[in-house]
Design a protein around this nucleic acid. Sequence first.
DNA 1: GAAATAGTGTCTTTGAGACAATATATG
DNA 2: CATATATTGTCTCAAAGACACTATTTC
Lengths: 245, 245
Amino acid sequence: MTIKKSYTSEDFPPFAVTADLVILTVREGALCVLLIERADEPFAGVEALPGGFVGPEQTLADAARTKLAAKTGVEIAPIHLEQLQTYGEPDRDPRMRVVSVAWLALAADLPEPVAGVDARNARWAPVDEVAADALAFDHARILRDGVERARAKLEYTTLATCFCPPEFTMAELRRVYEAVWGVTLDAANFHRKVLASEGFVEPTGRSAQQGKGRPAQIFGPGSAVELQPPLHRPAKDSEATAAAR
Amino acid sequence: MTIKKSYTSEDFPPFAVTADLVILTVREGALCVLLIERADEPFAGVEALPGGFVGPEQTLADAARTKLAAKTGVEIAPIHLEQLQTYGEPDRDPRMRVVSVAWLALAADLPEPVAGVDARNARWAPVDEVAADALAFDHARILRDGVERARAKLEYTTLATCFCPPEFTMAELRRVYEAVWGVTLDAANFHRKVLASEGFVEPTGRSAQQGKGRPAQIFGPGSAVELQPPLHRPAKDSEATAAAR
DNA sequence: GAAATAGTGTCTTTGAGACAATATATG
DNA sequence: CATATATTGTCTCAAAGACACTATTTC
């Protein structure tokens, strides 16, 4: 290797950099991911995670935010966005060398997604129904990593409130945990543990109006980011029965 | 945006991609990071994390492994390597648009590092003595993220054994935790908790030879990756005294 | 009142941490 | 034997989870 005083485009191999998004939400009791159907080759007609190239003057986070807003049609209100991992196998895109910086977004239930110019269709897919080989590129792997990150973070952060509307009941928050973790939780113990975690939720003083049973208190998100003490994730219901055999 | 059938170099902005390494070890009771002194501009003479460009046909992980082996002079034996985060602010490198994929490496105490062609000098620096503005580029931020990742992972994984030689005593393992977390741990409780975490360590049956007191049993790393139950990180000794005021 | 959902009480088990006590080496 | 380090025992406290019980609504 020779020592150089400055770099020109000949000194380093050029890469394309994309931002790809794992956008998760909870719909009808299931953890769902936003998938688009690709319009162009490669993988035309195959579903993929939304994403696109990072602009030359654009922050990585900005690129992710822009694409998130475009797909969800929502000005980034209470949506959490964090960097996941970067994927850069030399052959992951047949066209050229592409490095994909993947992001994880958590959102409350949103209106139906918007199809973009480069995507025929978009939908919320329950993550458990996405086959390991159903997505373009290495997006199935990225999705898996994103789901696992979300599952882990619910244990020790207050991120579950990102899946809820601005105001919610204890039962709604519990159903978020149940959907993301794929478990059933004891309502009584959950209630106590959430209230014991300082700054997790903030009581509004009001109660829910309609409903069958006793009206539930209404909470908003609290100011804390980390859960102290954390909530522990039990084994999945299906795994528990499997282990009991 | 127009729809295109194929991409050429005009269709996307070219980026340089580097792999930068946070290589941590425990030396003389302190968590240390490998720093190099930059030979070239920008930041000539300033310390930085080791790293370099990713080759056109190279995996991101391969690029990190190669640079790790070059700097430590060690064929990657029991060294743990995992991806940390990717940093790509448009102005982080004054020469051009660079996206840096950062990696975290954990190693047992190694021989003195090797200076490379593009580095005047290399040394193990205790992480607590690296000032927030002492490193080139945004490497101080990367270092902070790496240290925090390592600290967190010792709680729920068996990675602490990566900081130990292939065989170690319970006290050596405990001193790893104490150095990384900056705390003092109760030897008795630590002993029990490590043995209670199935697959964390494997007894060899032998005992240490030299030493002042009762000879310690010698262990090797176990087969488990996650700690069940985890070890909990207490507040730093200094923070505990501060909180007591 | 029956059913449904929200919320509280209580008991058992488990693990964390403080610290006493014992074991086995060296000088 | 004094000292140093390793290892085991024991006690207390906090949190997790199971589950009985009470509270407040709708039909």
